[in-house]
Nucleic acid binder design. Structure first.
Length: 421
DNA sequence: CTATAACTCTCAA
DNA sequence: CTAACGTTGAGAGTTATAG
């Protein structure tokens, strides 16, 4: 019955520290794509009051004063470290749900005889020793409570140094613990709900736990009703071990500098299609519609604003990068307006269906380049993505995102390994 | 009218 | 020197549309 939620401590920062020990005990932030906002903060940075999502330019002064090291995000590195961590964690239970890049649930059915706090400590030690990443472990009867327990473990609200087992607490201890935690910490309770619950006088976990499920369902939603049940040890969310195929695949990015010309926008759109189509093929799906969208910078209030998207239905569902690209570029031509400073473009593949049973169209014109796509995927898998690509993606890619402080590909690129003498 | 498609809002990491 | 603020995906609920 018990479930553990294992979560890496400021995961991206910890990944960087594994390969550069000089970052240990130093304030470190990892920035989002385009070096925009802080997406991971070391404990030292959190102590300086830097909030999640703070734009880098806003904390620049503080960073200078306190020697904050800022790094561009290096997703190849984090994905690799994540895989290693998940493999180690899988050794601790036959039931694992990988929930995100840095956390997973472990089903602990049949482990009731173990000392779960001790088991949690073993998990922490092994991941630290074998992968180098510090993690915390929350244990409870439901996923929602396990997430909450993990929060307690991270904040060390219940002792036991990085592990919190809620099932071991008495009713009185639970009441005390939950009374001290804001509702917003609960999984599924975001900004809007926190505010509205607050207006009803429900501002702590304990208050929501005690709220009447029927009333709350009527006032808010089934989702909140389920959350309340989960807070009361009634499990409503099962462990999902196999990730289902995506229903939509999106690829979008901000540019390193403003883009004005449709030619550059087209290169970006073609590049994003290539990324999305690769994911599409890897899950064995076909796309029935292609969406393309462009926008100016909404934060630059003094500049003229423009934002538009278009969804293009395909005559036949396809996974052919070249066909999807043609559709997207056709759409781009329709929505493009000259004279604007574009900051971002994106594409989405929608209406996904399985490759095995393609919907046949009586009026089908062209055939997909199936073999070409297979060859392209193999080459790019071996030599890195973008090695073989359509000319539409462009060569220079002057629009590509800013990554001024990226760490080496420690685990993914031989010639970026630092030389130790 | 109903069934479904399309869109909006919220949440999460 | 200046300007500079992420990405991807899901689900629920609402609105628009087709038949």
């Amino acid at each position: 019955m018990p479930i553990a939620l294992v979560d890496g401590n400021n995961f991206y920062v910890s990944c960087e520290r594994v390969f550069d020990p000089q970052l240990e005990n130093v304030p470190v932030v990892v920035l989002s794509n385009n070096d925009g906002c802080a997406v991971a903060r070391s404990a030292e940075v959190k102590a300086l009051g830097v909030k999640m999502g703070t734009p880098w330019f806003q904390m620049r002064e503080l960073a200078g004063k306190h020697g904050i090291v800022a790094l561009s995000s290096n997703y190849a590195l984090y994905a690799d470290m994540s895989n290693r961590m998940m493999q180690v964690l899988a050794q601790f239970s036959p039931d694992q749900e990988i929930y995100s890049i840095d956390e997973c649930f472990l089903g602990l059915d049949g482990f009731q005889n173990h000392d779960l706090i001790d088991y949690g400590q073993q998990i922490r030690q092994r991941v630290k020793r074998w992968v180098g990443i510090p993690v915390c472990v929350g244990i409870a009867a439901t996923k929602t409570l396990a997430k909450l327990a993990n929060h307690c473990a991270k904040k060390n609200l219940a002792g036991h140094d990085g592990v919190c087992d809620v099932t071991r607490l008495s009713a009185a201890e639970q009441t005390k613990l939950f009374s001290g935690i804001e509702v917003g910490e609960i999984w599924g309770v975001g900004r809007q709900l926190s505010r509205q619950l607050g207006e009803l006088g429900i501002s702590t976990v304990e208050a929501l736990r005690r709220a009447d499920p029927r009333t709350m369902k009527a006032r808010f939603s089934v989702v909140l009703e389920r959350t309340i049940a989960e807070l009361n040890d009634i499990s409503c969310m099962t462990l999902e071990e196999a990730a289902p195929n995506k229903q939509q695949i999106i690829s979008s990015r901000s540019f390193g500098a403003y883009v004005y010309a449709i030619e550059a926008l087209g290169e970006a759109v073609a590049s994003y299609i290539a990324i999305a189509a690769e994911k599409l093929r890897s899950q064995g799906s076909l796309a029935g519609m292609v969406q393309v969208y462009i926008r100016t910078n909404p934060h630059a209030a003094d500049r003229p604003q423009y934002q538009r998207g278009l969804t293009i239905p395909l005559p036949d569902a396809s996974d052919d990068t070249l066909r999807l690209t043609r559709a997207a570029l056709w759409g781009l031509k329709r929505i493009y307006r000259p004279g604007f400073a574009y900051q971002k473009a994106g594409v989405a593949l929608l209406n996904l269906s399985a490759t095995a049973t393609p919907q046949l169209n009586l009026f089908s014109q062209s055939k997909d380049n199936t073999r070409l796509m297979q060859v392209m995927d193999r080459i790019n898998d071996i030599w890195g993505r973008g090695t073989l690509r359509s000319a539409a993606e462009g060569i220079e890619k002057s629009w590509k995102m800013k990554r001024e402080r990226v760490s080496p590909g420690y685990t993914s690129c031989w010639n970026q390994l630092p030389v130790v003498s």
